[in-house]
């Protein structure tokens, strides 16, 4: 059984929803990122999304755009990210790690090499924002061969007629994008998420995580009560930005600020 499945089963057994935290690899630099990553489980992250920075993050709002730019100043590539995940795995064997980003860096790396090395490093799944089911056929065989979950996105615009095509190849969990928009701008609304969960549950037995537009512990509490996990990204990345501006290159101080915020979020979902 995969780490993702085990973790969601465990959450179910505890009778609570999970917290999924997003941080961009290499933001603000690789050493600080490693400190942030390593401390996330203790701060209360149940699943960790590691953002693969991209020069043209079309689906992201300003916070994640800026975090990608900070990371790319250090010329971060997939090899660096795999090394970082492997280092994390030495101290944590259980918390699932999902790589999240855009297709081009993976395509350039080669789908088979990507899947093989990601799994070897200890990653469990991948979310590729601009690879819809219509185009995913070229990558899925490599992911299946090496055992990396493909986590598909569903959106408010995904019609019922479309859902089976998306969910047929989904594994691990399903990601519901709660707002029509880019990351970190609008706020997720309780009623529309409630409706969407009803629609999605009719098509899948996989756990459902909801993200985009969850910024505060209170919002995380409200939304996580409706689904299996709440995803927080932009708000965490903004703490990275503010803290690294305030503290300069002080990895411990920046990581402490991020972990403090994640603790508050985790308290919200518990």
């Amino acid at each position: 059984m995969s780490r993702i499945t085990k973790r969601f089963d465990a959450l179910k057994a505890q009778g609570r929803s999970g917290l999924v935290t997003f941080v961009t690899a290499g933001d603000p630099d690789m050493a600080t990122f490693q400190k942030i990553l390593n401390g996330l489980p203790a701060a209360g992250a149940d699943v960790i999304e590691v953002g693969v920075p991209f020069s043209d993050p079309m689906a992201d709002g300003p916070a994640i755009q800026l975090s990608s730019q900070r990371a790319l100043k250090h010329d971060i590539g997939l090899k660096d990210i795999f090394a970082s995940v492997a280092a994390f795995r030495k101290i944590d064997a259980d918390t699932p790690i999902v790589l999240m980003g855009y297709y081009n860096p993976i395509y350039r790396y080669g789908g088979d090499a990507f899947a093989k090395e990601a799994v070897a490093a200890g990653a469990d799944g991948v979310i590729i924002v601009d690879l819809p089911p219509e185009e995913a056929g070229e990558l899925l065989p490599a992911l299946n061969k090496h055992g990396l979950h493909m986590i598909f996105l569903t959106a408010p615009t995904s019609s019922d007629a479309r859902l089976p095509a998306i969910l047929n190849n989904a594994s691990g969990f399903v990601y519901y994008v709660a707002v029509a928009g880019v990351t970190g701008t609008k706020s997720a609304e309780e009623d529309s998420v409630k409706q969407a969960m009803k629609r999605l549950r009719a098509h899948t037995k996989l756990p459902i995580a909801v993200g985009f537009g969850i910024k505060t512990p209170a919002q995380a509490k409200t939304i996580s009560a409706l689904c299996d996990a709440a995803v927080v990204g932009s708000a965490i990345v903004e703490v990275v930005a503010q803290s690294s501006q305030k503290n300069g290159t002080a990895p411990d101080a920046v990581a402490a600020d991020v972990h403090r915020f994640v603790k508050d979020l985790a308290a919200g979902v518990r």
């Binding site: 079309m58 689906a59 819809p132 219509e134 996105l153 569903t154 959106a155 408010p156 615009t157 479309r162």
Partner: peptide, 20 residues
Amino acid sequence: ENGHFGIFGGRYVAETLMPL
């Protein structure tokens, strides 16, 4: 029919845009 010219073209967009 899927918008490809050989290996080129296609519809590499986020799910939110796909139905549009």
